[in-house]
Every structure is written in structure tokens, then in C-alpha cells.
Design a protein around this nucleic acid. Structure first.
Length: 337
DNA sequence: GGTTGCTACGTCTTCATCAC
DNA sequence: GTGATGAAGACGTAGCAACC
């Protein structure tokens, strides 16, 4: 079984289909202001269901490749490479191969956005792409163990040191280059507008606010007012940093959440649509069909079939969704939204 | 009977644009 | 950085049919 420290933030939300009405939304966890966290799992544990949380997650398998499922899509993370992704996308570790040691680092979104990273890398991560360091061995087991140990201390200076070292590790990925391990159905583009620290600060605040209220009747002006900006100005700021509108972002998270509930629970469509923030089930049907290419029911069926076929190395869910993509399907790892 | 999928329609919100 | 504007699109509601 996986070994975790007391500070572990592995939110095993649905190990046994535990979503129910108490399901935790992908974004709500973002607001909990959990600290930076480092865990060396030895051995890491295969997950029986999807989980998600509001952090940027860094995974480093040390002695063999590991395989994840991101909303139905398989992703292999190579041994000794660093994988970086936004953990708000439902994901599960499904195959360890021979991996016995894996580092899992959770970075709060507001900290990640505060780092001076290339805008292209930030856009990849914030749009649900899994990136992997181009080169292996950028960090050692020794460093992971030291970070884990020092974060557990009450020494603020040492904790800051760990924070700085992890930031430098990610900057090294940005410098050396990275590979997309989960190709998207959209073009992020090479000429992204510059977004300042000022913009990222406000976008971070908006992300936090959306996280707390996205399953209410949330409007764009609510978000703008909450962070003290003019509605139109806030929309422009958000779009310049995130490359999508506030409304699209909220919708992306709702559908992402719905997918996990469809896959891992037997909740009714009405229940799911209300849980993830759609006030009318017709909107849920419309948007789900529009952005995933399949109806909620078909998605559930395909997802269940996927679990059975996975063991045989096939992936009917992925193939079907790819085929159904209408070109508007952006943002999410399985080409939805 | 409960659930799902779909459509029509009037209302409301979003968002791009421009002036300030 | 703010506010006004208008077009486009999203929204909520209601209703119907098919399916199990």
C-alpha cells in the first residue's frame, strides 16, 4: 500500500465510490490554501478510482514508468522524468509496472502562478495538459527525501528553502524543455500575449473565488466584483492569462467534475448536473454533448466499458471521444471543452 | 413511474468594441 | 482602469417521446 506522511494531500475521494452528495468539487479544494507538500511514496498505490484536487501536481517515478488515466486517457510517465499537471483534472494511477518509489509534490495554484515561468508552460498546465521534462534525472531521491523531511519541520526558513528549490526545479524544466504527454485538441499558440504578475495575481484571486462559488448561480460580474475589478476589465485580464473566458473556465470545471461522477458513481443525471453547478439539466445535456461529443449516458457506458477493456490494452472510450470531437472541443485532456 | 434525450422559445448574460 | 452599447450566445422552463 502507498505510504504517506501526515502532511499528505492525496485526496482519496472516491476509492470506493464515495462521491455521493458530499462529493468535493475539483475547484473547492483549491481554496483550502493547503501548503506545498512533498511525499515520497514507496511503493506508490494504484488508485481504484479517480481523484482530483486544486493543486499543481508534480510526479517523479524513480525506478520504472508508471501509467495514469486522465479522464479516460492513458498517459505514461517515464522513469526519472518529471511530470507536471493541474490535478483538478480527474486522474488515477493505474499501472506501476516495476515502480517502487515515486515522488508526489503538490503546489498550490496561487504559488505556481506566482513563479516566473514561460507563459506557454503556464498555459499548458492551466489548460489540463500533462507535461513531462525532456530530460531525466533533474532531481534525485536524496533531494525528495530532504524536502519531505524539512517541510515537516516548523522551521519557516527551511520550508522556504524547499519552496525555492522546487521552483527552481520547475524553472529548469522550462529552461531545458518539456514534452506534452497528453496531446490536446486545440492549439495553444506560440504567440501568447504577455501577462504580468499583476494580471496573474488577479487571475489567481478569481480562480479562488470561482472555486468557492462555481456551483452556485455564478456570474462573471460576481467574480469581478469579488476581486474588486470592473467586469469587462476582469474578463479581459482572465482571458489574457488563461486563454479562455471566465464562463468557459467555469464550464470546463463543471464538465470535468461531471465526467468523474459519471465514471465513478451511479448518481442520476439530475443529481450530477445539480452537484456540478448546472441549474437546469437541459443545460447539462447540451453542454456535455457539445463539448465531449457524447451524451452523459453514453459517456458513462463507455467509461465503464473502458475500465473492462483497459486490462486488455484497449481504450474504446478514448477512441470514441476522439472521433466525436467537433473541433470546438478544447481544453481538457480528452479533448472536451 | 422514473430516467433520459431532445427541442422550442423568451429572457438574460457575456463579451468585444469603443470612448473616456 | 471604467462605463456604455449591441450582437451573439447561453440560460431556464416546459413539454414531449422513448426507453427500461
Amino acid at each position: 500500500m502507498e505510504k504517506k506522511s501526515e502532511h499528505s494531500l492525496q485526496f482519496k475521494i472516491n476509492d470506493e465510490n464515495k462521491y455521493g452528495s458530499e462529493a468535493i468539487s475539483p475547484l473547492s479544494l483549491c481554496l483550502a490554501h493547503y501548503p506545498l507538500n512533498v511525499v515520497l511514496q514507496h511503493p506508490p498505490g494504484v488508485m481504484s478510482g479517480y481523484h482530483w484536487h486544486g493543486h499543481m501536481e508534480i510526479n517523479i517515478p524513480f525506478d520504472d514508468d508508471v501509467e495514469y488515466l486522465f479522464n479516460g486517457k492513458p498517459v505514461i510517465i517515464k522513469a526519472n522524468h518529471i511530470a507536471l499537471f493541474w490535478a483538478s483534472v480527474p486522474h488515477r494511477l493505474v499501472n506501476l509496472n516495476g515502480c517502487t518509489k515515486m515522488a508526489v509534490i503538490d503546489v498550490p495554484v496561487h504559488q505556481f502562478l506566482a513563479w516566473t515561468l514561460p507563459q506557454k508552460l503556464i498555459n499548458h498546465i492551466t489548460h489540463g495538459v500533462v507535461v513531462e521534462s525532456q530530460h531525466p534525472n533533474l532531481v534525485s531521491l536524496f533531494e525528495i527525501q530532504r524536502w519531505e523531511r524539512e517541510l515537516a519541520l516548523s522551521d519557516v526558513n527551511r520550508q522556504q528553502l524547499v519552496h525555492d528549490e522546487i521552483q527552481l526545479m520547475v524553472k529548469r524544466i522550462a529552461f531545458d524543455g518539456w514534452t506534452l504527454r497528453l496531446e490536446q485538441g486545440y492549439d495553444i499558440g506560440n504567440n501568447l500575449p504577455h501577462s504580468s504578475k499583476y494580471s496573474q495575481h488577479y487571475v489567481s484571486l478569481m480562480l479562488d473565488y470561482i472555486a468557492n462559488h462555481y456551483n452556485d448561480a455564478l456570474t462573471v460580474s460576481d467574480v469581478a466584483t469579488a476581486v474588486g475589478l470592473n467586469t469587462n476589465y476582469a474578463m479581459g485580464l482572465f482571458q489574457s492569462v488563461m486563454q479562455l473566458t471566465i464562463k468557459q473556465y467555469i464550464l470546463m470545471m463543471r464538465i470535468n467534475h461531471a465526467k468523474a461522477l459519471l465514471s465513478d458513481t451511479d448518481k442520476t443525471m439530475l443529481d450530477i448536473s445539480l452537484t456540478v453547478g448546472f441549474n437546469a439539466i437541459s443545460r447539462f445535456y447540451d453542454n456535455f454533448q457539445k463539448y465531449t461529443g457524447v451524451s452523459p449516458l453514453n459517456y458513462r457506458k463507455l467509461s465503464r466499458a473502458n475500465s473492462q477493456w483497459q486490462a486488455q490494452g484497449l481504450n474504446p472510450l478514448t477512441q470514441t471521444i476522439k472521433g466525436a470531437s467537433d473541433g470546438k472541443s478544447l481544453l481538457l485532456p480528452d479533448a472536451s471543452l
